[in-house]
Design a protein around this nucleic acid. Structure first.
Lengths: 347, 347
DNA sequence: TTGTAAGCGTTATCAC
DNA sequence: GTGATAACGCTTACAA
């Protein structure tokens, strides 16, 4: 069943006016007599006329919409970012179209192409963990299409970017574990080639180095899909715990990695923090309700969404091609709770 | 900076052909000579031509997109529904536009109008808790606009609907509490006029009645925004605990109500389940990691999204106006965990 | 086999 | 103060 909307033509025909008169009356143009305006506005109201944004987009070559690609809206970090994005976008009269990649390159490609071709005016994207080939984004960027990266960024494309200081986050988390007296600190990370992985693990390593702790590469495990599937985390942890020297603490460098880690320990009867301490890079909002309550590095996600959107709208509304691009770095916060507290701490 | 896409005109000009020839060549029409086709396709490929879907939409009066309005994507129930919706929609070649009402009537109105003004072919909606005036949806529905309601539905609009058996969910949860020996069972619900509230509380009351328990209206508290803001829940619980006869168990009839309830108990030092038992109507995926693990009524959210989408696509693709509408009712599941276990149970 | 023209809904420009 | 026309990008009768 096709839904037929009311158009300016319908109004014009009904009132015996031309479409241009109706159009002008609706936009309250000074050229139109008060009587005609009243007539048109009242009739439009009566039949509930709404301008067709598709037609407007075609004409104006802009849609007043921006597109988002994130891995998973079910992830608190991303849903908080989205709320930040919406808060700015709506204010400026832009609508927001949300899509999910589910960490799949193919899905990301489809979404980016759909969004770009649908003539959204600009794109906010955090890459899928599978994504290594960036040509789909490079093409768009080369043609002047406004893109802002957040969270998972890339060096190859020179545009605005918003991230948290991931190196510091990893460093702070690890330093906290070291100072709490843990000796054998493992790390569980997303795909190795992602910017967030590189930086967070970099911070972890820097902390170990600074405290003269020996570095054991076999203590770092990577999950290609960021722990989206439990089995991935299970496998990583299985192999971690099969080693002779078992870790006494673990730094989980992403949301899903953290929760699936906790699931694993619960399933295996491994106690936190008695048998192993856990600190997560996580924005889940139930951390204080977990058992034990969870120590985390938390990102200012809402703010990240806001900043990214402001940068994108700048790009979109700029009159001339933008050459100078910013990379904004926000600060993460460390929240220490029960999951990393050790009674026999050296502190 | 405006992004200028390649059009058929550009190709036509470059190759010295007419736009119609180019159009036909691109769609592999039988009328076009192999040589011309080859020429056009190769050049289109070379300059990375993509048809403008805005123009197509204007022409075809369809967008192959469907719109969603939910209260909050940060709510697991809704994000699971959305995943179900996407799973069907993508399969059928439809794209999905997600919007949030944040339980606000005004925001819902804006979203519905944006979506309906022909950016999408049909609408999937769960009402905002604030929404009492349905005229925005009635208008659309009367003009034949395809709408499917899920979760929070209304009687006044006759179209396809998908819900869970909320009455049974409320009944099962309450019966479980009664059988576990709790005597003074309170209920915390969303806005009173919502379908889900009516049914879930109806089930709660039916269970009390069946077991000849006295019904105390002051044990039922309503939160106008479904517990979206903590203060709302705090206020409800404060007033609940100020009463002389304090509840020994509580049935929290929605996701955010449940988690904010737990937050409140944690803050006040009220132990669960020793001081009060808690059962939630919730799809959060961390229930087993909470302390104590949480008993819940869980909805088949993914499936609900799938069913709703199938119904919507039927409406959209139907050749004639649909007169017969379905209300599909799915079954909720009861998961019993620690938060409702009482040592001195009568069982 | 290819080109011309109309139309989708809207607005800007130019007439009257 | 109002109307006719062209244009946005595309498809499709209808002509040639």
């Amino acid at each position: 069943m096709k839904y037929e909307a009311v158009t300016i033509k319908d109004i014009a025909r009904e009132l015996g006016l031309s479409t241009s008169t109706v159009s002008r009356a609706l936009r309250d143009s000074y050229e139109i007599s008060p009587e005609t305006k009243k007539l048109v506005l009242e009739y439009a109201e009566k039949i509930n006329y709404r301008p067709n944004p598709i037609a407007l987009s075609l004409k104006e070559k802009r849609t007043r919409s921006i597109g988002i690609v994130v891995a998973e809206i079910a992830n608190s970090f991303f849903s908080q970012i989205i709320n930040g994005i919406e808060s700015i976008a709506y204010d400026k009269g832009y609508n927001v179209i949300i899509t999910q990649s589910h960490e799949s390159f193919e899905r990301e490609l489809i979404n980016v192409q759909y969004l770009a071709s649908r003539s959204i005016d600009g794109l906010l994207i955090s890459l899928a963990s599978e994504t290594r080939d960036l040509s789909h984004l490079k093409h768009l960027h080369e043609r002047g299409y406004p893109i802002v990266f957040f969270d998972r960024i890339v060096d190859e494309i020179n545009t605005h970017k918003v991230i948290v200081d991931n190196t510091k986050g990893g460093y702070d988390a690890t330093t906290h574990l070291i100072k709490s007296g843990f000796k054998n600190i493992a790390a569980l990370a997303n795909a190795a080639y992602l910017s967030i992985t590189r930086d967070r693990i970099g911070g972890y390593q820097a902390a170990l180095e600074e405290h003269k702790m020996k570095q054991d590469p076999s203590l770092i495990k990577y999950c290609l899909h960021g722990g989206l599937v439990y089995e991935e985390v299970e496998q990583a942890l299985d192999s971690l715990f099969k080693q002779k020297k078992k870790p006494d603490a673990i730094f989980a460098a992403a949301d899903k990695l953290t929760t699936n880690c906790l699931r694993y320990f619960k399933a295996k009867g491994i106690r936190v923090p008695e048998d192993i301490a856990v600190i997560g890079f996580s924005n889940i909002d139930l951390t204080e309700l977990l058992s034990p309550s969870l120590s985390v590095v938390r990102q200012p996600a809402f703010e990240m969404g806001q900043v990214a959107t402001e940068l994108l709208l700048n790009l979109i509304e700029s009159k001339r091609p933008v050459k100078d691009f910013d990379t904004r770095m926000l600060q993460p916060d460390l929240f220490i709770r029960e999951s990393t507290s050790r009674k026999n701490s050296s502190l």
